[in-house]
């Protein structure tokens, strides 16, 4: 493993693009995405791993980017909300009211997207385990859980 002591130049694979950025070893992935790359879709809600608003995918798995160092993402494929376009879950969120203020939405969508990739047909059990790591203050989750069901239907239809 490479050791970093001071400011370093690294290359990150973000939404299919290679991006060269200069970081401090202590910089979190969330901060680097937002402040150095300008991808502000992932949100800081606590920067303490408690809310999930900052969720991104690392090699297909959801992680809280506030708890990851940017350096740890080197060599991995990073997908942020900006990398998701016209997915079933985004469509379903729109149709089923999966959001109000939208602040938690990026994190929820990214997490739910990964959930549907891993568990395209399972219900509830896995859903709760995956999604209880994300907080939403506006919706009471009704629209979100409906959206997940709907997205599963959409995915099935296209299979």
């Amino acid at each position: 493993m490479k050791a970093y002591r001071d400011i370093a130049t690294i290359t990150l694979d973000i939404n299919g693009e290679e991006r060269r950025v200069v970081v401090r070893p202590a910089d979190t992935l969330l901060r680097v995405l937002r402040e150095k790359v300008g991808l502000t879709g992932a949100k800081p809600g606590c920067e303490n791993g408690d809310c999930g608003a900052c969720t991104v995918l690392l090699d297909g798995l959801p992680v809280k980017s506030c708890l990851k160092l940017a350096l740890e993402a080197v060599g991995k494929k990073i997908i942020t909300i900006e990398g998701l376009k016209d997915t079933a879950i985004q469509k379903a969120f729109m149709e089923e009211g999966g959001f109000q203020c939208g602040y938690c939405t990026s994190g929820f969508l990214v997490n739910a997207y990964a959930l549907l990739e891993k568990h395209p047909s399972s219900k509830s059990g896995a859903d709760r385990e995956w999604l209880e790591s994300n907080l939403c203050r506006c919706t009471g989750y009704e629209g979100i859980s409906r959206a997940i069901d709907k997205a599963r239907d959409i995915i099935k239809e296209y299979k």
Binding site: I81, M94, T105
Partner: peptide
């Protein structure tokens, strides 16, 4: 009627104040 801000919100491109630096 669908929300006016819906598209921007599900694409993560709606900017809140903290997003502007």
């Amino acid at each position: 009627f669908p929300r006016k801000d819906g598209e921007d919100k599900v694409r993560g491109i709606l900017r809140y104040l903290g997003d502007k630096q």
